[in-house]
């Protein structure tokens, strides 16, 4: 038994190293084949991978199917957009908060506000379970979506574009390769942190929530607190991902919070494999590359993607990471 576990562990470890090497080498690769504009695509994949991995924490490990994760993604994006808007304008937000285009101000703000939004929404939503939880998270996300639409000062429906990207001391974020590596470092940093957290007592308790809440409570661990902590952490990380996405595109719009975005994130998590953490990044890569390839092939790519998704759910269970790493869920 011990031998078997060690063998599996090695295979997953090799896969992780391959993935890490791919992420690091990607900018060289696209430059070598003479397609440097693909760096932006790579950055988008890593950002969505970050958001999907944060969703995996609550869906895959905690068993809480949130259908509103795009809300926190959008909150992070709008924090960056609104701060940049006021920095450019020279006005103060609500008359007190000055704008900023410094990454070291805007990104932590996005994390904090994403987390606070998740704390508030989670505190209410986690009183329900199952279908009701899916729908109430969707409802809260819809509220924030319509809030974004009604923000006429910040573009309303049309969204808000800003430039330049947030500034980082000592780095030129306008350079696509530098920005890519900034995103890569944040993603890898989060994955390491999340892995450590999942291997700690918190992670065990979180899986306990998924498996049997009542038994967890009988062991003296209150499920509600664990769930809320995980939900808040996931929201904060999604806020960071939204901030990065806003910077990548230099544009924010209500599209960031659209309910189909929450659906996309769930698809990425499932595609990669529930409760595999790294699988979500793989799922994000596969979905975005699939979309890009199909879109180049036909304008009506969704007519292909839809049935592909249905077939994947029906016939290929367990996700890509499990297939490649030879493991089932954690």
């Amino acid at each position: 038994m011990a031998k078997l576990t060690r063998a599996k562990f090695t295979r997953e470890r090799i896969l992780i190293l391959v993935g890490l090497a791919l992420i690091l080498a990607y900018p060289w690769g696209v430059a070598a084949v003479g397609q440097p504009f693909l760096i932006g695509l790579g950055a988008r994949i890593l950002v969505m991978g970050l958001a999907a991995a944060s969703l995996d924490l609550i869906v895959g490990f905690g068993g809480m199917v949130s259908f509103g994760h795009a809300a926190f993604f959008g909150v992070g994006g709008y924090v960056v957009g609104i701060l940049a808007f006021h920095a450019h304008d020279g006005t103060d937000l609500l008359g007190v908060i000055p704008g900023s285009n410094q990454a070291l101000v805007a990104w932590p703000a996005a994390i904090v506000l994403g987390g606070l939004a998740a704390l508030a929404i989670g505190a209410l939503s986690l009183r329900t379970t199952g279908v009701h939880f899916i729908m109430i998270t969707l409802a809260f996300a819809q509220m924030l979506f319509f809030l974004a639409v009604s923000l006429k000062t910040y573009g309303g429906d049309d969204g808000l574009s800003f430039r330049p990207r947030n500034l980082l001391p000592g780095l030129d974020t306008r350079n696509e390769t530098s920005f890519y590596y900034v995103v890569a470092v944040l993603l890898v940093g989060f994955l390491i942190l999340a892995r450590r957290l999942l291997d700690a007592r918190f992670g065990t308790a979180l899986r306990g929530v998924r498996e049997n809440e009542r038994r967890l409570a009988a062991l003296g661990i209150a499920p509600y607190g664990i769930k809320l902590a995980a939900f808040t952490l996931a929201g904060a990380v999604a806020g960071l991902a939204g901030a990065l996405m806003a910077n990548q595109a230099r544009f924010v719009s209500p599209e960031l919070l659209h309910w189909t975005k929450s659906g996309d994130l769930l698809i990425m998590v499932i595609l990669g494999g529930l409760g595999t953490l790294y699988g979500s990044v793989l799922g994000a890569a596969v979905l975005i590359i699939l979309e890009t390839v199909l879109a180049a092939w036909t304008e009506h790519w969704m007519v292909v993607l839809g049935p592909v998704l249905v077939a994947l759910i029906l016939f290929a269970r367990g996700g890509l990471w499990g297939v490649l790493a030879g493991t089932r869920r954690s």
Partner: peptide, 13 residues
């Protein structure tokens, strides 16, 4: 979760 994602695929189609 499977139901949500599969029927989401149907909507796209």
């Amino acid at each position: 979760l499977d139901q949500v994602v599969a029927t989401f695929g149907l909507i796209l189609f």
